[in-house]
Design a protein around this nucleic acid. Sequence first.
DNA 1: AAAAAAT
Length: 754
Amino acid sequence: MPKNKKPRGGRPAANFEPRYGAKKTSFHDRHTTGRDSARDGARPERGARADAGERRSAPAAGGYDRRPGSRSANHRGYRPAEAETGAPKQRWNAQERAGRDEARSIRNRAESGRREAPHHRGDERRPTGPGTYRDERGGQRFDRDERPRRDDRGAGTQRQGFRDNDHRDGGRPVRDDRRGQRPTGPGSYRDERGGQRFDRDERPRRDDRGAAPQGRGYDRPNRGGAERPERSYDADRARRAFDRDRTQRSFDAPRDDRPRRDDRTSSDRTERPRYDRDARDSRGGERSRPSTGGAYRTERVRPLTSDTRGRPSRNERPSRNDWNATSRPAPAAAKFEPGADVVHERLEAKSVEAVEVDGVSFSDLGLGSNIVETLAGLGAASPFAIQAASIPAVLEGRDVLARGRTGSGKTIAFGAPLVENVLKSQAGKRREFGRSPRAIILAPTRELALQIDRTIQPIARSVGLFTTQIYGGVPQGRQVGALKKGVDIVIGTPGRVEDLINQGKLDLSDCRIAVLDEADHMCELGFVEPVQRILRHTAEGSQKLLFSATLDREVAALVDEFLIDPAVFEVAGEDQGSSTIEHRVLVIEHRDKADILTSLVDRAGKTLVFARTRAYADMLAEQFDDAGIPAVSLHGDLNQAKRTRNLERLTSGRVNVLVATDVAARGIHVDDIDLVVQADAPDEYKTYLHRSGRTGRAGRSGRVVTLITRQRQRRMTELLDRAEIDAPFENARLDDDIIEEITGRMPTAAALTS
DNA sequence: AAAAAAT
């Protein structure tokens, strides 16, 4: 029975799929789960047995740690406290209890002047293993935030064990190391971005911020006015907005700058007010964030929603409809002086140069020492560009839109400052039992939500905060139990989150930060509505952070309603030319498809195959299996247990081939996937970018092969053009050398660069 | 078409 899988899952699975009770071994616990029954149809008989068992043992159960109404897991618990001691207890025991104590002492220390000398404190409580990740990754931090790798996944319990390791020296030295190692080839930011430096106007701000951060009414109780002097927002904003002499930048392009852009001004102006006023007034935006002047806000938002009129580059790439279009220095941008912002179609962003980031540390950015140390333990010794850009803005309390390519560190970019903000908002407060969450992070898939939690949890835990995952496909019991107990940060998928809200089990009214990962995807049809409803449940004026590798104007609907004066960031030099991924398109005969796929997949490395439908994904996996190539599938028709298990099989290397639908296209990370095969070509260029982003990570080389038939060539050409990818089209037959070549030796990164 | 709640 599947039960046998558990041993292996012991560690990885615990981490990967904490809800799934890898640890649950006690008789009645299993029953509880069975009864909770969201338990998927995989083993109906088990559920039945569980019910029977429950009935039998219920009466006597009390003495045996049985909760009288464990039905209350779902059901308004008659004894909430009890509910927590049941199943959740096991899970909380070691690690969470430790965390709690830790939190307590942190709080105590915090109350006696925490900001001043946090460092010594950190040393003893550093929760994560030191050089662990750093070493493996050769100092490159590409993956670290996207997905704590396997080792990492080993649940908090394990990490605690590392606690005493001294990696204090990790901080600085490591950064230096890394600098040395940082790939200077394609993956490197440094080489391609000319020597543009972080704008001075930007930097000073950060220092200021250290002293007086939250621009918005973020809760900051108990913070000595001395440390972070209270400031009138108006004053603050105004100062930042106008007192700087700089070239205009998107996110803070002040009114004053506007006149300079003669070409766009007039039309923009007429349009701008419309967006704003309507949106803001109707939702009381004014009240919620009185600090931002109306006019100011308007202009900030405008770039996102305005169209491209007057932009020459549009004509050149008519199909390109987004912000990405000019992510690399476009001709249009050339007329701007060095150091000036690149002007983007439809959405202007402050373009961050990686070189600017050299020498900047996480603590420079405003993160506390505990968090900084934890990040170092995760392999993030110093910030990536996108992190350096967005962390200060997030700490400041601003709404942020950020685009950074896959694996560029987005999770930490929002996660670390989010934790810091939540911590600040609770400084000195008691962490009450049953407190409602202060922050929520939404992701489009369960796997991604889990992965995000794997990164955020250690950071949160390092400062005594708790996270919980709220996603579907698993029993609610534990999730509700955790909520009852009280968590600070919720990470989940829209469906279950909304479900629990409607059931009154999740209260977001105190939620002051909301993050949308893969934000553009979350704005697609079918996703937006629930997301909007959820966001409306968050505290009025809550801070919103939108991140994605392909962030574009698709998020306009949300921006208009929910964001105020957003800072917009992206990383310069992130074009496909700087990628370590080799793309190619095989034009094939349909009748050869199955066999070609099999031969493509018959190789040594890990291969991820994308199929358009669930059925086809299953079919292919089966086909490969039959051909003697162990393969599993990942798609929405599988129950969550299988999804988790199959993905884990690939990560662990038990199989080398995973056939997935687009559920696996975004965000999920598996090390060492060196070939991505698109059995079905995607319809959108964004999908192409995300799918191909599953390989070529950490500066490694990777290949993406897309199979199409002759009829599709034109569409594919257009798509690649939009994605700004150059890929040769090659006719391929089953016995072609091409296939051999693809499945054979992978080109070195060096070869790709030259 | 897929994904996201559970039924």
